[in-house]
Write a protein that binds this DNA or RNA. Structure first.
Lengths: 357, 357
DNA sequence: CTGAAAGCGCTTACAG
DNA sequence: CTGAAAGCGCTTACAG
């Protein structure tokens, strides 16, 4: 598929130099924009013309070897989903054409220092690491590239979300809708951001006068696994009086929705469900999901700005936590008592069709 | 965050050679497993010990420069979603530890030869390209790395799906459920796989005695955009007699579900909806989505095997199209006439709760 | 079986 | 302002 008659001729700086009638040192200077006051205008132009005509591009591999660092930025994500797609978009936006962004998936496991280590020999310009383990920073080997952490509340210097107001709003919303007892479905991933989500919910529940069941199951972050775990715990949750379940992520919440459905429960009439993230599909699951919306692209942009600051020595951007927002949808929205419209049979239909998108 | 007291000392082959009392040539031979009958057992063991003690790893950048190609495999995907996560998982499975897999997102645009060109200076061992444009192969510059295409039906050598039986099954299923007229929501992405999906549906509809409306709108592959387009076309579709909508992807189908919901339509009673892909969330959207399920991990594995065959000169794996499957869920499942149970008011509730997961 | 040497294509002091 | 040269850390003929 890739064999071509022309031999894979790389065009090198040497060829450009020959064409421009100068040395490869000079070519290097002008293509890297380091020619201010060091290369005459005439030569600069000839080099540029030659670069253009030959279609020259600096070999990243040779450049990285000579400079010690290349132009590659690696985003280490625990998963590939629309949320991280947005984060990546945000990163790409601020990185621009200067760096090449590539993402590496750790496949559910939390990104570790070993994952970083496996990339150092590629000499990336920097790395962006999403929600690593708590001891990540200490584990980092000397000689690691510049690194910025995303959504790692326990690690100093990480770009983080301001979750507290939204979690408080969620607890308040549930209390207002008549809930007294909540269950929580956590993830098996032991990342600081998830510890924080749970702790904030505990605190907010207490403030709102809600009881949060203490025995909190954990599920792998897939719809199927979450559904299994939720199915197993639903009877106990209900027996202990829970009328609402909050999940650590939207994906987990989908599993709860599925389990509720399978158990013949009506959401939200029998069980309210809420999550964290606000994935694009959360507006269209059945019923649409109430969730703490986390700005993914904003996280990526902020992280990329920090990385640029480290790599290029530019002034560090401000490090304020990113605002989040509670998005209320049908999965927690009870028909108000004073709405007194439909009979009980129609309530599910009503719960669906009043859905805000 | 990354400054450490120890200077970023890379351990090099020279250090290993010094410790093992041999030359860097020999170190290179043993770490690359090219020492068969060329290095004595004694020296081999001393080198291995030194590698172990020093924690040596070959510098990818230097190695790629010297060899001409590195150990990087780049997966060029139009998007990051659970589907491509599965494809990547499949790729990673067969690539093993020998190569490093990194993914690059083209952000909705179809992967092009230019995207490939932007990576050649990184000297990847190979690239995997998902659903590129039809003229992709011709556009490829000389000197491109080995490339395998995924889901590119028009390109010779691509790993492809066998869609025909499932599309026929979908048309048959809709016909059986009493539908006579279908609308189709296409994507704005002009990839061969989408042309094929539409064409197959046209053919299958004809066979099943269904009318497929000819005016087919296209939407960007996001839930929101699909919802907008569907909202605008729903009145016309219904006026022209369509009782079912098939979308080119599940994500687009989510938009149709959302638009139907917003229009107060009941799915599937007023409108049946189906998609392609079978994303994990498709089992939990409201109502669960009937879809042509495409084996994502299998696609990745097959593609990676082909790449390995090219890169390492191993025998080429068989190139049969990958089987697909129609998954029927509640979004197209009419309550049978002879089920004669609930009144019309309860049908939505019923449509939800009978959902198969 | 082993190692000195050339070469991969750049970048960067350094000397002019 | 300009270029020869060393060096980045490997790999691979090549000569012993």
């Amino acid at each position: 598929m890739t064999d071509s008659p022309t031999p894979p001729q790389r065009v090198t700086a040497e060829m450009v130099a020959a064409r421009a009638g100068t040395s490869i040192s000079t070519v290097s200077l002008v293509v890297n924009g380091k020619d201010r006051g060091r290369v005459s205008t005439a030569i600069r132009e000839r080099v540029r013309a030659a670069v253009e005509e030959l279609g020259y591009a600096v070999d990243q591999t040779a450049s990285a070897l000579a400079r010690g660092r290349g132009d590659l930025v690696i985003f280490l994500a625990p998963d590939l989903n629309p949320f991280f797609a947005e984060v990546a978009r945000g990163i790409g936006e601020v990185l621009g054409g200067r760096y090449k962004l590539l993402v590496s998936v750790t496949r559910g496991a939390q990104p570790s220092a070993d994952d970083v280590a496996s990339f150092v020999s590629f000499r990336p310009a920097g790395m962006l690491v999403e929600a690593p383990s708590a001891d990540f920073s200490e584990q980092l080997a000397a000689g690691s590239p510049p690194i910025v952490l995303l959504d790692a509340p326990d690690s100093p210097g990480s770009v983080v979300y301001d979750l507290e107001p939204s979690v408080a709003a969620l607890a308040g919303h549930l209390a207002e809708n008549g809930h007294r007892t909540l269950a929580y479905l956590d993830t098996t991933r032991r990342m600081a951001t998830f510890e924080l989500r749970r702790r904030l919910l505990e605190e907010a529940a207490a403030v709102a006068g809600l009881t949060l069941l203490v025995d909190t199951p954990r599920a792998d972050a897939t719809v199927d696994k979450a559904m299994e775990i939720a199915r197993d715990h639903l009877p106990r949750w209900r027996a202990e009086g829970a009328t609402a379940v909050v999940a650590a992520t939207d994906t987990l919440a989908y599993g709860v929705l599925a389990a509720a459905l399978a158990a013949g429960l009506n959401v939200p009439a029998d069980l309210a469900v809420a999550g964290f993230d606000d994935l694009p599909s959360s507006a269209v699951v059945g019923p649409p999901l109430t969730t703490v919306s986390l700005p993914a692209a904003g996280l990526g942009r902020a992280a990329a700005r920090h990385l640029l600051a480290i790599v290029e020595g530019t002034p560090a951007p401000e490090a304020a936590p990113l605002p989040t927002e509670l998005v209320v949808r049908a999965s927690t929205t009870f028909r108000r008592q004073d709405d007194h419209v439909d009979g009980p049979g129609a309530s599910a239909v009503d719960g669906m069709s009043t859905t805000a998108l």
